[in-house]
Design a protein around this nucleic acid. Structure first.
Lengths: 114, 114
DNA sequence: CAGGATCCTTATAGATACTG
DNA sequence: CAGTATCTATAAGGATCCTG
């Protein structure tokens, strides 16, 4: 059994493969997800309607779903003020901000290649 | 018309919003896309079957489609050797490698948060 | 205002079979 | 081997209406 490389797992070449579709990556692999992080991160906090204004091509329900997922993942916080009319503020959590930081080089480059 | 902020476009707050779903980001917002870049980038070049081995949960057709899209986007190069049996090698282009670089902080973090 | 519920359409992925 | 073609299943997104 000298040659252990023969049936070695496929993912350890270089030790830098990220094969499974899990966690954050799977959350980000959805429409508007990356943008949403970027948009929320560009403000201290914002309301649902403001987010909608930033993503005019996304539907209410899509944004709502993305926000739910992000909140569930602990990336976005949701603060509800029981006023009339109701007000809800969304902001990045610490984790969300860390994500935003790591997304920045990508977004910068993406913007420059359009 | 002193207060131009009243009806200013939604996306210029801070000058750092990336709202539209275009270009690279839209390519990346698909299943296995991010992983694919990472996997190919972890090797100098690899063959279709090797890529499949790295993404056991993705179907042949999905991988094939992603590769087509990446090639179209100029991120991946495809080199065909007319041997028997046929051999095809995939590798990142310069642009693709730039993308991979910018994806790295994200992937690193994603791996650490699982 | 914020967004849930519903219904509908399209996009996306997967399985299978087959070819250069 | 490296795919493509085809078909099907499902998921994702969008439009609309409605409510706390």
């Amino acid at each position: 059994m000298a040659d252990t490389t023969a049936n070695a797992p496929a993912c350890d070449v270089d030790g830098t493969c990220y094969c499974p579709l899990t966690g954050v990556i799977s959350t980000l692999s959805q429409k508007y997800a990356i943008q949403l992080v970027s948009i929320i991160g560009a403000h201290d906090s914002l309301r649902f309607a403001e987010i909608e204004a930033h993503l005019p091509t996304a539907s209410t329900s899509t944004i709502s779903k993305r926000l739910d997922e992000f909140e569930e993942a602990g990336l976005v916080s949701r603060t509800q003020y029981n006023e009339i009319p109701p007000r809800v503020e969304y902001a990045l959590t610490e984790d969300g901000d860390e994500l935003r930081t790591r997304l920045e080089p990508l977004l910068e480059w993406a913007a420059s290649t359009e």
